[in-house]
Write a protein that binds this DNA or RNA. Structure first.
Lengths: 225, 225, 225, 225
DNA sequence: TATGAATGAGATTTCATTCAT
DNA sequence: GATGAATGAAATCTCATTCAT
């Protein structure tokens, strides 16, 4: 499945000239991430971030252009990889075997995403919050998604429809339902931290069953109604 | 409970002694609603609200205790009606006909909620934003939901399980999936205003089919796999 | 001569909806003017202005959009009137009598400008400073001068040349020399406050004599060289 | 005439124990000079200077005590030589020929200063800006002028008055008018860079004529009025 | 009841300067 | 000598709220 395990791995790509994230930057991002998850972005002050990070307030601006730059450094890498990673999984799952069923694919996808959520809870909370915050920020988040990823999604869905594995609904509709179900889990998991991680195994089963049933073409409709 | 009392206190403060909302209050709430939807709550200033409402800044504080009081006055009535209304639909649909199928129930529920979303787009955008904004506001929103409503939901779900109409999964899981699917629609509809309202008819069909399929016990599993 | 006596008279035009300058605004402008003259614009802080004005720092921004807005409110009215007023004097002086000489005109002009400088020393110091501060500010100052005023100047100079009162040099050159001589006085008077105002009478004589001699066509050149 | 050709020649005097200016110092001063002319001293940051110079910010402080030290290194040499050089020219011109006329002197002086301005435009822009910027800097600039130079000026003017070449006005007045006329040219030339250098020949003629006429004792006043 | 000027604490950001490498 | 990350004081500006009219 996807290689993405933690966001930390992506900081390096967006910071530092040589791809290295400095110790100071890590301290700042770590402190900011914790605070943004505790309160909201707007409620967290730069002074507070600096204090928690154990650096001077000015150091924030030496390492990031803005308070907003800190937010972006947290969000960008993970946002830029959510959809591509999903599509990658999807592709791998579908192409992996000749006798591929929707069931196998959905299980693979759900499993991967559930793990991803578990590993990046705090960052996802920040991103979720920003996404609903206002139109401008939402556009920014969506702007991080590459259009090519969506085209790729279309291809895969069309392939599954052709094999009779997937209902013949508009792709946007199918994507909406997929995102809804996964998003619903995301929201529950992210906002209610008390949920035990051990429940994940069962959760994956329910989500997969629900999706497979919901998105399979109805079989033998004559008998059922 | 305690939160509810606090919110009710804000609501009372914003209404006249006879439970009537004054013309000035309506102007303020209307202006604030529009602005909170455009930007975020934190990004909107009291000066801005007053300007758009055509009143003086001080007038805001004569009619509402706080800037936050304005927000609560917008959110409270609608939040307090989402779940009760859903449960009411559910009850009506199930009890209304002898041949109570899951299908009939889901269609009724989805239809009603889709209309509700269409009618309250702006308010729901604000609520959505606040819900994800920070833990305190989220708790406030959830606190507006009466626990008795949830108990009522359990009863209905158990009844449907008993008739073999509904999968035998934990009720919290079923609720999560219901909310996810409806919530996914809500998010799409609320955030992308360009969606034509006429698409709603088709949308209701897709959502209903997906939910009914997803939540029905698997029929003839032996034949299918 | 010109009606302009003090800058204060022009504040009203640019401030207040009904053309009235409030007491608070006067306090702020007065404090800022004094400080800008003592130090430079950049060296004066808003805290300092507020303290000297005896108001809260926030009050500055309630009355002016910017720290820069305060500067503009000081500069604009006086800058917008320097050249028009000069040209008006010039016109009046020339047209006043049939037997008009360059001498009479220059004396009138110099007298008026010398008085103007004496009355608006502090404001002119601020304007002088800003003018030389940087290219952007300089452009802003020059942008306040209406182009029509310059056209008017051309007409008057051409008239004087036709009557043989003025040397037949390019108008821009003549303006440069006029501004130089008056500007030199301005600089001396503005920067060295110790100069007694009573010296002005003598000063006017010297400046006038110098300008009239310098700008008159040479008479009887054959005899002199 | 004066030996001063470019400011660069003076850097050596204020820098380096052995009178040598290092390559790094030259880069810094050159970058700072350009920036101070573009914006104002206060608006230019040390980071910006370092970037333009292609050195690290810390390097600035290894080579100069202060940000202000950089400014001084630019201004000092040229300021310290403006007046002495003028007086020197004056002396040379007057003493050079037996038939010393005011005309010869003025032409020599104006020619030299006009060339000087053309050669040091950028530095003079900075000095001009600082001179008007605030009282402290102004005092510093004026403090760079040696009192002995002024005494020397007095001697020359008295000599010219004695020969009837110069109006019998106070020397400070005559100096003011001289500085005004040259200063007016300086300002125009420095601030409006688009002026073609080839115009200088004509400019010298106008300035000289104006000054000679303006500062010559009136001839045959009875005939003229 | 409505007003809107005044408030002042707090927010973000800039910047010259230091210092360990 | 050169570096550049770190500093923290100070700057400008915002904003919900109060209160005299």
């Amino acid at each position: 499945m996807s290689e993405i395990e933690t966001i930390q791995a992506y900081y390096a790509a967006s910071l530092g000239k040589d791809g290295q994230i400095t110790k100071t930057q890590r301290k700042i991002l770590s402190a900011a991430l914790a605070l943004f998850a505790e309160k909201s972005y707007e409620e967290v002050g730069t002074r507070e971030i600096a204090d928690r990070a154990g650096v001077a307030e000015g150091t924030l601006f030496h390492n990031f252009t803005n308070k907003n730059g800190i937010l972006k450094a947290i969000m960008q890498p993970i946002v830029q990889n959510i959809l591509p990673a999903m599509l990658n999984d999807l592709d791998e799952a579908v192409l992996a075997s000749k006798t591929q069923t929707l069931n196998a694919f959905v299980v693979a996808l759900v499993t991967d995403r559930v793990k991803f959520v578990a590993q990046n809870r705090a960052s996802l909370e920040v991103i979720l919050s920003q996404f609903f915050n206002n139109a401008a920020d939402r556009a920014a988040v969506l702007g991080m998604v590459s259009p090519s990823a969506l085209q790729q999604a279309e291809v895969v869905m069309d392939r599954l429809k052709a094999t009779g594995e997937l209902v013949d609904w508009p792709n946007t509709m199918i994507l909406q339902l997929l995102f809804s179900t996964l998003g619903g889990y995301l929201v529950k998991r992210v906002l209610y931290t008390e949920t035990a991680p051990t429940d994940d195994e069962t959760m994956i089963r329910y989500l997969s069953d629900f999706l497979v049933n919901g998105l399979s073409p109805r079989r033998m409709p004559l008998l059922l109604e």
